[in-house]
Simulated assay, not measured.
Amino acid sequence: MTYRQGVDPLSWATLFTEWQLAPLPLVVTVWSVGLYALGVRALQRRGDRWPVGRSIAWGVGMAAFYLATSSGLAAYDTTLLSVHMAQHMVLSMIVPLSLALGAPVTLALRTLPKRPRAWLLAVLHSRVAKVLSFPPLAFGLYVLSPWALYFTGWYDASLAHPYVHEMMHVHLVAVGSLFFLPIVGIDPLPGRVGHPFRVLLTVLTLPFHAFLGVTILGQTALLGGDHYRALREQAGYGWLPDIRADQELAGGILWGAGDLVGLVFFVVLFVQWVRASMKEAEREDRRLDLLERQGGG
Rank of each mutant, 00 (worst) to 15 (best):
R4K: 12
R4Y: 06
Q5C: 11
T14I: 09
L15D: 09
T17V: 10
E18P: 12
E18I: 05
T29P: 09
T29H: 10
W31V: 15
W31H: 02
W31K: 08
S32Y: 04
S32M: 07
V33Q: 06
R41I: 00
R46N: 00
R46K: 10
G47I: 06
V52Y: 05
R54K: 12
G59R: 09
F65V: 12
F65H: 13
Y66S: 09
A68T: 07
A68G: 08
T69L: 14
S71R: 09
A74T: 01
A74C: 01
A74L: 04
A75S: 13
Y76V: 09
D77M: 02
T78E: 13
T79V: 13
L81M: 13
S82C: 06
S82N: 07
V83W: 04
V83M: 02
H84Y: 13
M85C: 02
Q87D: 06
M89T: 05
M89Y: 01
L91N: 09
V95Q: 03
P96N: 03
L99A: 06
A100K: 05
L101D: 01
A103Y: 01
V105A: 02
V105Y: 04
L109I: 04
H125M: 00
R127D: 13
P136A: 11
A138L: 11
A138N: 08
F139Y: 13
S145Q: 14
P146I: 00
Y155T: 02
L159V: 12
A160Y: 03
H161T: 14
P162F: 11
Y163N: 14
E166Y: 12
E166G: 14
H169K: 13
L172C: 05
L178V: 13
L178M: 15
F179S: 08
F180T: 06
L181S: 13
P182D: 03
P182A: 12
P182Y: 08
I183S: 02
V184A: 01
D187R: 05
P190I: 06
R192K: 13
G194H: 06
P196V: 09
P196W: 08
R198G: 12
R198A: 12
L200Y: 03
V203S: 10
L204Y: 01
L204E: 00
L206W: 14
P207T: 10
F208Y: 11
F208K: 00
A210N: 08
L212E: 00
G213Q: 01
G213T: 01
Q219E: 08
T220N: 14
T220W: 00
L222D: 00
L223H: 03
G225W: 01
Y228G: 01
A230T: 10
A230G: 02
L231P: 06
Y237Q: 07
L240G: 02
I243S: 02
I243V: 15
R244V: 07
R244Y: 12
A245G: 07
A245R: 10
A245S: 12
L249V: 14
A250H: 08
G251E: 03
G256R: 09
G258T: 10
G258E: 09
L263K: 08
V264A: 15
F266T: 14
V267K: 02
V267R: 00
V267G: 00
W273G: 08
R275W: 00
K279V: 04
E284N: 14
L288M: 11
L291N: 05
Q294W: 03
G297K: 03
